[in-house]
Every structure is written in C-alpha cells, then in structure tokens.
C-alpha cells in the first residue's frame, strides 16, 4: 500500500511541479494521499474479509485471525446459500420491492419537497414538521400497531405491506436530504419558466427533477441500501416463503443452537453483488448529474 501511495505521490509531484508549487505543498499532497489511501484500506477491507469469511468452515470462522485464509475453501457454502437459503426464490422479491419502494419514495419525496420549498402556501412548515417527526419514531415501537393495521386492511402476507412500509419510513429522511438541495435552486429559473407559460407540472418534471439529479441519485443509493438490507418488516408482515426476501435467507442460517456462519457469509456475499453494481451505476449519476441536466448554465 505504501508503494501505491508513493507512486501516487510521485505522479502528483509531477503534476504539481508543472504548476510550480513548492516542495512543502508537494509533501502535503503526498501526505493527503497517504491518509486517503489508509482510509480507503479501512473501508474496503470488509469486502475482502467477507469473501474470505464466506469460504470458511464454522470452525475456521472462530479460529485465530480474521486475516487468515481458509485452508480448504468451502465453495459449497455458496451452493448451500443458493439452495438452502432459497436465494433463487428470494432474490427477485428483494429486487422488485427495493426498486418499487425507491421509485415511490423519491417521487413522493420530490413532490413534497417541491411543494414545500417552491410553492406558496400557508401550511408548508407544518407539513414539513409532520414529515420530520416521522424520522423520530423507533422502529420497534411501530411493529405491533403496524401489524394490526395491515391485518385490518388485509395486507398481511402481501408484498404491498412491505413496499408501502419502506416508502413511508424512508420518506422523512429522503425529504430532509432533498430539502437542502431544493433551497439552493435559484427562484429566477422557475420565474422565467412561468413567464414562458410553463405549468407547475412542467416545472417540476422538466426543471426541478433534472436539476436535482445528483441528490436524487444520492437518496436512491441510500434508500436502496436500506431497503435491500431490511428484514424486520419482512419477517413480521410476510408469512409465505414466496414473498420473503434475501435477508430472510441470511437469517435462516442462524439456528436454535448452531449457526452456519460460512453460509451466512456466502449469502451476504451473493446479496451484496447486485447492490454493489447498482451503487456504482448510481454514484456515477451523481457526478454526471449536472452535465446531464445542464439547465443551470
């Protein structure tokens, strides 16, 4: 790693000397890269660890060092995860619950934030306050009342209960994050649009949404990760196997007395791949966001 840092440093050095910076500043940048790289190692290590973990036997999992390599890689853990963890069955449920909830959340949150920050009405702060309070309720207090609510409207063991819960519980957070961004959009833009005869819907879909692409991508990532890893709701509101999600597969390896850690590792490893891909695609959208919606310039 120090090699990597050193290389970076020299690369950077070249660039810096071109622009005629002092030695001190070069050292500073080198140090900066060193720190950034150390942080990077800290943050990427768990993925590597999880991979090793997924190939270990239960005995090795608790053996000496988390660094250690499995003696005899247990690829069978993956087969086990796939069949006994019912990944094949749960995978698509996870995907479509996540996607549906993310789309709904972002759409609703954008509507609300737009109405609160860009439109003129008296109760906007009160409504915002109502959403804010939604941020504060501890999840476990809601389980029993929510269960009886879904039971009364016949949504127990129905995927809608999951999608609606994810949407409702992520709305406050998403609105909060969007809020800071909507405030930075200059009013002149929509003033001009209104003068041009744009309707409100057009302003929302044609101006506000594209302008906020970076933050939409950001909230999409956050929402997606939350929904993907959630299991308390699924576990409580869903009874039949065909509606359960991947996280239930993970927990099915936690036993009454014995827990199959290797298979848990494998399930986690498999389940992280789609989210990793989605994340990389979306996080590129954050960067490209402005270029794509270059209304501002």
């Amino acid at each position: 790693m120090s090699e990597f840092a050193a290389k970076k440093q020299s690369d950077l050095g070249k660039e810096m000397s071109k622009s005629g910076r002092s030695v001190g500043s070069r050292l500073g940048t080198g140090l900066l890269y060193l720190i950034l790289s150390i942080l990077a190692v800290f943050q990427i290590y768990p993925l590597f660890w999880l991979f090793l973990f997924s190939l270990k036997t239960n005995q090795e999992v608790f053996s000496a060092s988390p660094f250690s390599f499995p003696q005899d890689p247990q690829w069978g853990n993956y087969a086990k995860a796939w069949t006994q963890g019912h990944i094949n069955l749960y995978f698509w449920n996870s995907v479509w619950y996540t996607v549906a909830a993310v789309v709904l959340t972002i759409l609703f949150a954008s509507f609300v934030t737009f109405a609160i920050t860009r439109m003129y009405w008296k109760l906007n702060r009160l409504v915002l306050g109502l959403f804010m309070i939604g941020l504060m309720i501890p999840l476990h207090s809601t389980l029993i009342p929510l269960f009886s609510f879904f039971k009364n409207i016949g949504l127990i063991d129905n995927p809608l209960s999951i999608i609606l819960s994810y949407t409702a519980f992520n709305l406050p957070l998403t609105i909060m994050i969007l809020l800071g961004f909507y405030q930075t959009i200059p009013r002149e833009i929509e003033e001009a649009a209104v003068i041009d005869g744009c309707s409100v819907h057009r302003i929302f879909f044609r101006i506000a949404l594209p302008l906020t692409t970076p933050v939409i991508a950001t909230t999409a990532i956050i929402n997606m990760i939350y929904n993907w890893n959630e299991f308390v709701f699924v576990n409580t509101f869903i009874n039949s196997d065909r509606w359960k999600t991947l996280t239930v597969g993970v927990n099915s390896f936690v036993g009454q007395y014995l827990t199959d850690w290797g298979a848990i590792g494998a399930t986690l490893m498999i389940s992280i791949i789609p989210i990793l891909i989605a994340f990389i695609i979306l996080s590129n959208r954050i960067v490209e966001g402005m270029a794509a919606g270059s209304v501002k310039g």
Partner: peptide, 18 residues
C-alpha cells in the same frame, strides 16, 4: 396533489403507530 399521497402514507403507517 403533490402533498397528499405522501401525507396519507405517513399518516397511516407512521402516525397511527405513533
């Protein structure tokens, strides 16, 4: 139109439990 859907959702799923 913009506010009600979301408000209804959190009303049922967050405020009732709350």
């Amino acid at each position: 139109l913009y506010v009600w859907p979301a408000l209804l959702l959190i009303g049922c799923l967050i405020y009732i439990p709350l």
